[in-house]
Design a protein around this nucleic acid. Sequence first.
DNA 1: GCTTGATCTAAACCTGACTTGAGCTTTCAT
DNA 2: ATGAAAGCTCAAGTCAGGTTTAGATCAAGC
Lengths: 156, 156
Amino acid sequence: MHRTDLIAIGELAARTGVAVSAIRFYEAKGLIEALRTGGGQRRFLRADIRRVSFILIAQQLGLSLEEIAAELTRLPAGRTPNGADWTRISTGLRARIDAQIAALQRTRELLGDCIGCGCLSLKKCGLYNRDDKAAQRGAGPRYVLGDRAKEIAEIG
Amino acid sequence: MHRTDLIAIGELAARTGVAVSAIRFYEAKGLIEALRTGGGQRRFLRADIRRVSFILIAQQLGLSLEEIAAELTRLPAGRTPNGADWTRISTGLRARIDAQIAALQRTRELLGDCIGCGCLSLKKCGLYNRDDKAAQRGAGPRYVLGDRAKEIAEIG
DNA sequence: GCTTGATCTAAACCTGACTTGAGCTTTCAT
DNA sequence: ATGAAAGCTCAAGTCAGGTTTAGATCAAGC
């Protein structure tokens, strides 16, 4: 039995490699929860190291914090993910990765067709006119891209 | 010979599917240039349709506007990319895509190892402790991630 | 009891890729 | 000649995923 079952935010930060500010941010976003000391300082359970680890790994796999929060709240009673949960979740993630790979491979093919053609016609170019929008990445309100290109005419 | 060799911003927008505001933004960023009428309105060359197309396609391939600007200014005399340029550029892009695919395939393998293990140890987990940082995507100052995770201890 | 280091809150700032709004001007077809 | 549509500038807003700063408070060792 450990002398300290609860850890301070700095220790959680050190154990996970995440900045203290990021941990507070995750708490504000509802990804983790903290107890408080009499003086108002956060105290975390050791299990929260695992919970933060889950967040980091899921991020590496491309999930947004919102999606991660959804996964975490899907666990009964705010439980930290265990092996069975992880099996379920990671199986779902694999499908996601497969889709990303497929999209990139298709991009690669199209690029192959395109090398040397130099057409750069938005009307004809397979690279731009795709049915899959899977390459969508990055920040900012570019959410319209793809919805809009309706009246695209020929170049030149 | 066309009656109008120059097109207004609205037409460039319509021809490329990009919002007018985005075209102004690209101009402000130095990605395209415009002539001005006596009244101060922008007039573009028809060739700029091709130039904007290049921007869009390069974006689909994951380049930032800054990188795209670099490619464009690498062309002599602010020329619009032609077939030869495109061959050179797209060959480089292919390498980039290949790297992305490789990174994802490696992620997939690691995830396969991981399914059912449920360890979620930052110290041991191959998913988190990667040498390649290729999965880096998305917005915001998360650029530190990966640099930092030095003093990572065991879980639990 | 005191100092030192860790934590606290709240608000502001950052990047990238744009959009939105206000208020005014130009162009073009009739 | 006029009125609508399209354009102009400049400032500010958006979203994600945080970081930074400032000023105050807490916890722990000596």
